[in-house]
Design a protein around this nucleic acid. Structure first.
Lengths: 155, 155
DNA sequence: TTTTTGGTTCACAACAAAAAGAACCAATTT
DNA sequence: AAATTGGTTCTTTTTGTTGTGAACCAAAAA
C-alpha cells in the first residue's frame, strides 16, 4: 500500500472510531482523540499537537483530555526537563474490556433483581421473563470469571 | 412492605432504568417507557395509558413507541374487537443480551484488526498492545459461542 | 521582574435534540 | 353523514450540548 493511501485510510478510521465511541457516550472531540491515539503511528501526542492535528480550540481539547483521563481511556507521560504532557492511549485495555462487560452485566443483574423483588405477582408474565433473563445473565457473569482465569493462565 | 412504599420504589426504579437506558443511547421518553413496561405490575399498557401515566404529549409517546418497536425492545398485542394496541416489553431479552455483547465484540475486533493492519511498525507500543487486546477479545468471542450452547442445553 | 509556555476556566454563540401542541387522518360508532 | 377514537405528522418552542475565544493562572525562562 502506498504511504499516502495508508494515511488516508488511517484518517478515515479515526473518524469511524470517533463515531463508534460517540455511541458509547463520548463527546465528539473526545471520541476522535481516542481514535487519533489508537490509529496513528505517532504514539504520543502533546496537547499542542492534538490542537494542531485536529484543528480544534485549546479549550475543547483541554476538556476532552480531562474527560478521557478520568474515564481511564488515555494517560500521559512526562519527561524530565519538559513541561509538556505526552498523551497516549492506555495499555491494559484488554482487561478493561472484560471488566467493563462484567461490570455492566452485574449492574443489570442488580436492577433486574430489584424489579423482580418489587413485583406483586411472582408468577406474572414479566416476572417470569425477568427471572429467565436473570438466570441467563447470572450464568454468563459467573462463567466470565472462569474465562478470565483461563485466559490469563494460558498467556 | 407496604403497598404504597412498593409503588414508590417501583417509580424510583423506572427513573433509574430510564437513566441506564439513556446511557445506551435511548432518548429520555423511550428509556422511561421501557422502565415502565418492565417494572410495573400492569403488564400491558395502551398508548393512552402511557400518555397519562407519564404526563407526556401524545407525539412524544408516538415517536418513542415507534423507536422502541423498531429496536426490538417492546412489542404490542391486539385483541379482537378492540382497536387499541397493548404494548409490553419483549420476552426473549436473555438471548438478546448475549447477542448484543457478541455483536459489539465482533465489531470492535474488526476495527482493531484494521488499525493493526494500517500500522507502519508492527512492533510499536500501540501495535503490540492492540494485538494483545485483539487476542483477548477474540478468545472471549470464541468462548461465548460455547457458553451459549452450554446454557441452552442446560435448560 | 517580566515574558513565555502550557495549559485551564468561564461566558457565550451556534447548533442539535427533545417535547409540546395543533392539525390532521383513517377506522369505527352513532 | 357526523362524531368519536386512536393515533400520526408537522411546526414551533424549549432544553441541552458543543465548541469558541478571551481572560486568566502557575511554573519556568529570560
Amino acid at each position: 500500500m502506498e504511504e499516502s493511501e495508508r494515511l488516508r485510510k488511517q484518517k478515515e478510521l479515526i473518524e469511524y472510531i470517533g463515531i463508534q465511541h460517540q455511541r458509547e457516550g463520548y463527546q465528539p472531540v473526545a471520541a476522535r482523540i481516542v481514535g487519533l491515539l489508537m490509529v496513528m503511528d505517532k504514539e504520543e501526542y502533546t496537547f499542542e499537537e492534538i490542537v494542531e492535528e485536529m484543528q480544534i480550540s485549546k479549550s475543547a481539547v483541554s476538556m476532552a483530555l480531562k474527560n478521557l483521563e478520568i474515564r481511564g481511556m488515555i494517560e500521559y507521560v512526562t519527561y524530565p526537563g519538559d513541561r509538556k504532557r505526552y498523551f497516549r492511549f492506555v495499555s491494559n485495555r484488554a482487561d478493561g474490556i472484560f471488566n467493563e462487560i462484567q461490570d455492566k452485566l452485574k449492574q443489570n443483574l442488580e436492577t433486574i433483581r430489584q424489579i423482580i423483588e418489587l413485583k406483586k405477582d411472582p408468577a406474572s408474565r414479566n416476572a417470569v421473563f425477568l427471572k429467565n433473563i436473570y438466570k441467563g445473565m447470572e450464568f454468563f457473569a459467573r462463567k466470565m470469571d472462569d474465562l478470565k482465569r483461563e485466559y490469563n493462565s494460558q498467556q
